[in-house]
């Protein structure tokens, strides 16, 4: 049963990578990259159950936090052109 779930997640990963290659704008690629991260975390959890090594879940949690920070920093770079931009120092936004 976990093998079927792993196969479904692998197919979904392939579809997300197709979108990342085709995507006309950079935001399509960021969205696809975020989806790849989500699916990789689920694949880690499922493989952890498949091989009966639940330690994979810790790696999944860490990867979830890294995925969030990675996506947000890429978006911040495209939004402000500067990773050290301080939104509080301006009155607007």
């Amino acid at each position: 049963m976990f093998a079927a779930a792993a196969a479904a997640i692998l197919v979904a990963l392939a579809l997300a990578i197709i979108r990342a290659i085709k995507g006309p704008t950079v935001f399509d690629r960021v969205l696809a990259g975020n989806s790849v991260g989500t699916l990789a975390i689920m694949l880690l959890a499922v493989v952890g159950f498949l091989t009966e090594r639940p330690e994979f879940l810790d790696i999944g949690l860490t990867y979830g936090l890294l995925n969030l920070i990675g996506t947000l920093s890429v978006l911040k770079f495209f939004r402000h052109g500067d990773l050290a931009y301080d939104a509080d120092s301006e009155s607007k936004s």
């Binding site: 704008t25 935001f27 960021v30 969205l31 975020n34 989500t38 975390i41 959890a45 639940p54 879940l57 810790d58 999944g60 949690l61 979830g64 936090l65 969030l68 996506t71 947000l72 978006l75 911040k76 495209f78 939004r79």
Partner: peptide, 27 residues
């Protein structure tokens, strides 16, 4: 740990989507 993973997705998913939508409009 599985429930922590679910909570992580529930709380961070909308933040990423909102940031992405706003960056698209800004561009």
């Amino acid at each position: 740990k599985l429930l922590f993973l679910l909570a992580l997705f529930v709380f961070t998913g909308p933040v990423v989507t909102h940031a992405l939508a706003q960056a698209c409009l800004h561009e």
